[in-house]
Write a protein that binds this DNA or RNA. Structure first.
Lengths: 337, 337
DNA sequence: TTGTAGGCGTTATCAG
DNA sequence: CTGATAACGCCTACAA
């Protein structure tokens, strides 16, 4: 473990001088700098982060809470972390991901890292904690919410407008002539899902179509629930002619159940998904879906968080990034994409 | 930021006493302990990890290098992290994931965390660094490799036997009558892929089938390459009657290109994948594949690493966990699973 | 059983 | 421009 002192001795200067060279202070003479740099290289000196943190109080590390990794695996969310990493790097920060995986106690354990000032701030991509606890945490440490969020916590957020996105999808289904529109949602109660349900209802309302509670059903997993629930829909007396699914994996299951029942798409049944994941682009039918700019989402969250860490006054409380409806053959024949 | 001193003042003792209470030293009298504990609670004291790390040496944090998150998103690798988390928790450790994402310099930056003893050890799930650099790192800090590994580094590893798994798949294809067997591999040169290629060749050799270099082709991405390369295979004079793909996503593309050409499966074309991901179980055909016990993989890697951290003498150098061939309708009609 | 003192590796302040 | 010194929060001999 080579320290400042070792370098100082080698270069024949004091430790403070080495420190200044490390921090690229303008006060140091050119020759001294060169000599110290050489010593640093020779000894392969690496500054001790713990010591630096102890002095400075910031670690340039941000942590991101991942409540459920497996969920992301369905939605190609990985670019979100890439967005975080790239934006963080730009500001000299590192991002670490914490695999909380639906365990509240483990989430609290990980929060110890910010409490103990091992990280400078937290990005929540969803959380197992309740609003009160989160609000308290948000008041004490720099925090932001990314993608999923809870308004009651008062923690700034970055996300798409999920309600609007759902309205766009359902509006599209209405526009192409559907009046009887089902929705496959999830029993899992998170912001994006509730908001998509709201958007669905709002779109119906605006079109003057009465809302029928039987037209929303709730799955417990993705693909398999898509199949099972669609079969339930198809068994109804007054079956829907279009189904809006809150994810592409569900939509894939939905489309396959429909095809399995001998229905043609989109003529007999239109299907729409969400996320623009690989699942939506598989062979047939390519599924109409909503694309989320996940890379931006991550980048914005980091920017917002660093802004809070720096103590900026004008932190944006709620950033909404644009989404995009992608129409494909599961709703419109011969559609472009 | 409340420190030991604050607690000490409040409890009317010295800082060292508080420190001893924090570390549950047996020397402290019961009453003092109680009094100090109360003060700790009242002030909501949280020890500063940076300071502690500076003095001591272990942080009970393990980091896991993720070279490519997006790749995992194809293979439902998430359970591997769950396995790591659970096993780590059992030993009082936390796991943090580092989104390196194919950037060598960023990987080196993250390695600063172990260098600075901010984490106790490293799990590499693949790496961008070359063998020499890794060997050096492995000699200096506790490290293990998980799933992907490089033998030349001398760093202990946990993985399945990829060559054997490929032999099982290709052996199965041979057994059901195929002699002309193609393989869709990847231009990406990592251990699992090279080993699967070796297994493929070995299986042919054992069956006395001469190896034809034209029968291995290399994709750059997953699903789309599967389609494109299969079409190239189908255009050959002496086309394969079976194709072994190194991932389910590739196999899905392969199956769909075959279906698109009007081929029946498995009669006209048999297709096998790898990973037992959701992609292999989609509607039709369900694809013959290999299941990896990813949860165990992660757990074993952590166990191995902690064993190294503790300085155990009998660390297993190479742990191989079992895989399982899952035969489905893409190779055998009316197969069970 | 408890307190004192010194030091872990940095950086900021102040003096030169 | 550079060096000495103190301090960050914690732990651990050693002393009492």
């Amino acid at each position: 473990m080579v320290s400042l002192k070792d370098v100082a001795r080698k270069a024949g200067v004091s430790a403070s001088t080495v420190s200044r060279v490390m921090n690229d202070s303008p006060l140091i003479s050119f020759e001294t700098k060169a000599r110290v740099r050489e010593a640093i290289l020779e000894l392969n000196y690496q500054p001790n982060l713990s010591a630096r943190n102890l002095r400075c109080a910031d670690t340039k590390i941000i942590m991101c809470m991942l409540v459920s990794l497996s969920n992301f695996f369905m939605t190609e969310f990985s670019d979100c972390f890439l967005g975080m990493r790239d934006k963080a790097a730009k500001y000299g920060y590192k991002v670490i991901l914490c695999p909380v995986e639906l365990d509240r106690d483990i989430e609290r354990e990980y929060l110890g890292l910010v409490r103990n000032s091992l990280v400078d701030g937290v990005i929540f991509v969803n959380s197992m904690l309740d609003s009160d606890e989160l609000r308290e945490i948000g008041k004490t440490y720099p925090c932001v919410q990314c993608s999923e969020y809870n308004e009651e916590t008062g923690i700034p957020s970055t996300s798409i407008n999920n309600a609007q996105a759902a309205m766009d999808v359902v509006g599209h289904l209405i526009e192409i002539g559907h009046r009887r529109i089902g929705m496959i949602s999830s029993v899992y109660r998170i912001s994006s899902i509730s908001q998509r349900e709201e958007g669905y209802k709002q779109a119906l309302r605006e079109a003057g179509i009465p809302f029928d509670p039987d037209m929303i059903k709730y799955g417990i997993n993705e693909y398999d629930s898509g199949i099972e629930i669609t079969n339930r829909f198809l068994g109804m007396d007054n079956r829907p002619t279009a189904i809006f699914c809150i994810s592409d994996a569900i939509a894939r299951g939905c489309a396959e159940a429909a095809a399995g029942s001998g229905l043609r798409m989109p003529e007999d049944m239109a299907v729409a998904g969400f996320d623009n994941s690989i699942m939506s682009r598989l062979y047939w039918p390519k599924i109409t879906t909503v694309s989320q700019p996940v890379y931006e989402l991550g980048g914005n969250a980091v920017e917002q968080l660093i802004s809070i860490i720096k103590g900026d006054k004008d932190v944006q409380d709620k950033i909404v990034v644009g989404h995009q409806l992608i129409v494909r053959e599961s709703t419109v024949k011969n559609s472009a994409s």
